[in-house]
Write a protein that binds this DNA or RNA. Structure first.
Lengths: 253, 253
DNA sequence: ATTGTTTCTGAAAGATTTTGATGGTATTTT
DNA sequence: AAAATACCATCAAAATCTTTCAGAAACAAT
C-alpha cells in the first residue's frame, strides 16, 4: 500500500489541519511511512508555509479563509527570518500581545505550535491562531478597519487597560531619532495603550523604515526595549539604536 | 481490447478526476496499457493542464477540493432560506448585533452589500464582513473559543455593556416551553448580555431544535421578539410560540 | 494489395529521486 | 549528570523517471 508522494503529503496536511497538532510518531502510524520520510515531508510542508514544524511533530499554520493572506502570502524570506528570530525569543507559557501588520502576522505563523497566551487586536492573527490547541487566544475588540483587519478605537483601548503581558510585539511605519511613527492616528492611540500593558516592547521592522517618519507619532525611542531588523540597516542607525539603550537583533539574509 | 488513443486518455482523465490521486500502476491495470504509454498519456494531459503529474502517478488539478471551502459552503438550502428571510427584515443603516453559529453566519453572508453597522463576537462573521465597504464592523473581544471562533468571557460581557443596537440575531441549541437553551455556560452568559444591548431579539433556528433543551439555560421565551424557522415546525409549536407573544416567520422550503 | 511514411506502442538501459536505516549530535526530561 | 527523546547527515537500496530504439499499427498514395 505504497502511497504516492503528493498523496501522502496531502494526507499529512489534512491530518495536521484537522487536529491542529500531530506528533511525528502519530503521522508515521497514520500514513504508514518511515520516520525519515515523514520528517522530509514535514520539512517540505513547512518550507511552503502550510504547516509549522515543531519539536516532535507539526502544527497547522496554513492559510485560513481570510482575505488578508494574499498580501502576506508574499512574505519575503527576509520577513520570515525576522519573524523566526522574534519567535525564538518567546519562551513557552509566556503571555504575548501582538499588534497587527504583515510582519507580526508572520511572527504569529512562527509561533504556531508553541504553548502560549496570545492577546491580539488583529483579525488575521486571530484567524491563524484560533485553532491552535496549545494557544490561549484573547481577542481585543473594537472598530474593525477594513484594510488591515485590526480592531481600534475607544473599545480597543478600554479592553487593553485590563491586559497585562510579558511582551508586546509591534510593527512600525517609520523610525527616526525622535522615535517611532505609524500611519494612522487611531492605530497609534491603540498602540500607545499596548505599551502600558507590556513589560517589554519588541519592534519588528525592515531596514527601509529607518530615517522615515509617518503621519502619526507613536512614541520616543526609549519606550522600545528591543528591535529586530534585517541586515540592510546601516552602521549609523545601529549606533543610534544602541545609544538609545535598545537591544538590537540584526537578522542575516 | 485495444483502446483508441483518445478514448484511453479520456478514460484516464475520468479516473484521475474521480479519485483525485492515481498511481501509474493502477492506471496500467485499469486501462490495460504499458507503462510507457500511460506515462506519455499523463505527460500529454499534464501538458494541456487537465491533470497534474506527480511522482508515481497523477493528481487532479481542477477545482481544488481544498478542504476549507467545502465545509462552510455546506449550508443547506434550508439554512440559506432562513438566513435570507432574516436579512430581508434588516433595513439600511440599522445597527445589528450578531451572535456566532452557522445559521447566523449564513445571515451575515446575506447581509453583504447592505449598508449597516454590525457588531459581533464571531470571528467567522467578522472575516466575512470586514471587507464590505458598506458595513461598519465592530468586534467584541474576549477569549476566543477554538471550535466556534466566538469571543466569550468577562471581557466580552464588559464590552457588550457599552453597545446598543436595534436588533440582535441569535441562534439557539434548543427551545422548550420554558425558554431557550445553548450548549455552553460561557456562551449563554455572553448572550444574556447581548439581550441587554438590543431592542429586538430575533432567533434563527431550525425546526428540529423545538422540544429539546441543552446544557445551559439562556432565557425565557418572552425575551424573544421574533423567531425565524423552517416549515418543519409542528402546529403545536407554532401555537406555543404565538401564545408567548412572539412573532413567528416560517420559511417555505 | 503494396509500398513508404508517420505515429503510436512496448521494452530496456541508464539517470534521477525517493526511501528507510544507521549512527552520531542536539535538546529535553528525569 | 544521566537517560530519554528528537533531530540531522549520510548512504545504499528501491522506486520512478527519461531516453532511446525497434517493432506494430494507422494512414496515404500508388
Amino acid at each position: 500500500m505504497s502511497m504516492l508522494l503528493d498523496e501522502r503529503r496531502e494526507s499529512i496536511l489534512k491530518i495536521v489541519e484537522n487536529k491542529g497538532f500531530v506528533s511525528l510518531v502519530d503521522l508515521m502510524d497514520s500514513v504508514g511511512a518511515s520516520e525519515s520520510t515523514i520528517r522530509r515531508d514535514l520539512e517540505y510542508l513547512d518550507g511552503i508555509g502550510q504547516i509549522r514544524r515543531t519539536r516532535g511533530g507539526a502544527a497547522y499554520s496554513g492559510e485560513s479563509l481570510s482575505t488578508f493572506e494574499d498580501r502576506s502570502f508574499m512574505s519575503s524570506r527576509q520577513k520570515r527570518q525576522i519573524a523566526q528570530a522574534v519567535a525564538n525569543m518567546i519562551s513557552p507559557g509566556e503571555a504575548v500581545l501582538m499588534d497587527g501588520g504583515t510582519t507580526t502576522l508572520e511572527v504569529a505563523r512562527q509561533l504556531a505550535g508553541k504553548q502560549l497566551q496570545v492577546v491580539t487586536n488583529s483579525l488575521p492573527i486571530a484567524n491563524l491562531l484560533v485553532n491552535q490547541p496549545e494557544i490561549d487566544l484573547m481577542l481585543i475588540g473594537g472598530f474593525l478597519f477594513p484594510k488591515t483587519g485590526v480592531a481600534l478605537g475607544k473599545t480597543a483601548v478600554e479592553s487593553l487597560k485590563s491586559v497585562h503581558v510579558r511582551r508586546l510585539i509591534i510593527s512600525v511605519g517609520g523610525i527616526t531619532e525622535d522615535g517611532l511613527y505609524n500611519s494612522n492616528m487611531l492605530l497609534v492611540e491603540t498602540e500607545q495603550q499596548m505599551f502600558e500593558a507590556a513589560e517589554e516592547v519588541i519592534v519588528v521592522t525592515d531596514s527601509t523604515k529607518f530615517g522615515h517618519s509617518a503621519l502619526a507619532y507613536l512614541c520616543p525611542l526609549d519606550t522600545v526595549d528591543h528591535i529586530v531588523v534585517d541586515d540592510g540597516i546601516t552602521e549609523e542607525w545601529k549606533d543610534v539604536i544602541r545609544k538609545a539603550g535598545i537591544e538590537l537583533t540584526v537578522v542575516e539574509t
